[in-house]
Simulated scan of single mutants.
Amino acid sequence: MSSILTGIFERHSDYKRLENEVETSGFENSDYIVYLLEDHPHSQYMASVQIRDNEQLTTAQNIFHQNSVVKTYLFENMSIEQASYSNIKKYIDARCRAEIHSSPDVRIKVQHDGINSEVKS
């Protein structure tokens, strides 16, 4: 079964350019989906590409990076028919909740003894 590579793109990225590059690199029109918000034409958008082998994965990743991808997700054993916006969003939300985010450097202050009984007067 195939996999789905999904990317979240920056606001200034041009989804038409992404579509063109995906199609000229050998993917069919039925192999990808671009998710757009109708009421916000210049907002962030997502795109999913159906991947069948490692070569296609590398090609799609390169295209995504050239088009200002912010974050990518690979969903294995999923077809493009299963990659509806609500389904993909549900999986991304679950992965984000499961990620352990790195915390800032924490300094632990150790308690010192101060003056103890060994000090002679």
Rank of each mutant, 00 (worst) to 15 (best):
M1E: 15
S2Y: 07
S3H: 04
L5G: 01
T6G: 02
I8H: 09
E10W: 01
S13T: 03
D14C: 13
D14H: 09
K16E: 05
K16Y: 03
R17E: 04
L18V: 06
E19H: 04
E19T: 05
E21M: 00
E23H: 06
T24I: 04
T24F: 06
S25D: 00
S25G: 00
F27A: 00
F27D: 00
S30P: 00
I33L: 03
I33E: 02
I33P: 00
V34T: 06
Y35A: 00
L36W: 03
L37Q: 05
E38Y: 05
D39V: 00
D39F: 03
P41Q: 04
H42D: 08
Q44V: 05
Q44A: 09
Q44E: 12
A47V: 04
A47T: 03
S48E: 03
V49W: 05
Q50Y: 02
I51K: 07
N54H: 01
N54I: 02
E55V: 08
E55N: 10
Q56P: 01
T58M: 09
N62I: 11
F64N: 03
Q66H: 14
S68K: 14
V69K: 13
V70N: 11
V70S: 15
T72M: 09
T72L: 05
Y73S: 08
L74R: 12
L74H: 15
E76K: 15
N77Y: 14
N77G: 06
S79Y: 01
I80H: 08
E81S: 14
A83T: 04
A83F: 07
S84H: 06
S86L: 11
S86N: 14
I88F: 02
K89G: 06
K89D: 15
K89H: 10
A94T: 09
R95G: 13
R97T: 07
E99M: 14
E99V: 07
S102L: 12
S102I: 09
S103A: 14
P104K: 06
D105M: 12
I108Y: 13
K109R: 15
H112P: 10
H112S: 15
D113P: 09
D113Q: 14
D113L: 14
I115K: 05
N116S: 11
N116K: 05
N116R: 13
S117W: 07
S117E: 08
S121Y: 10
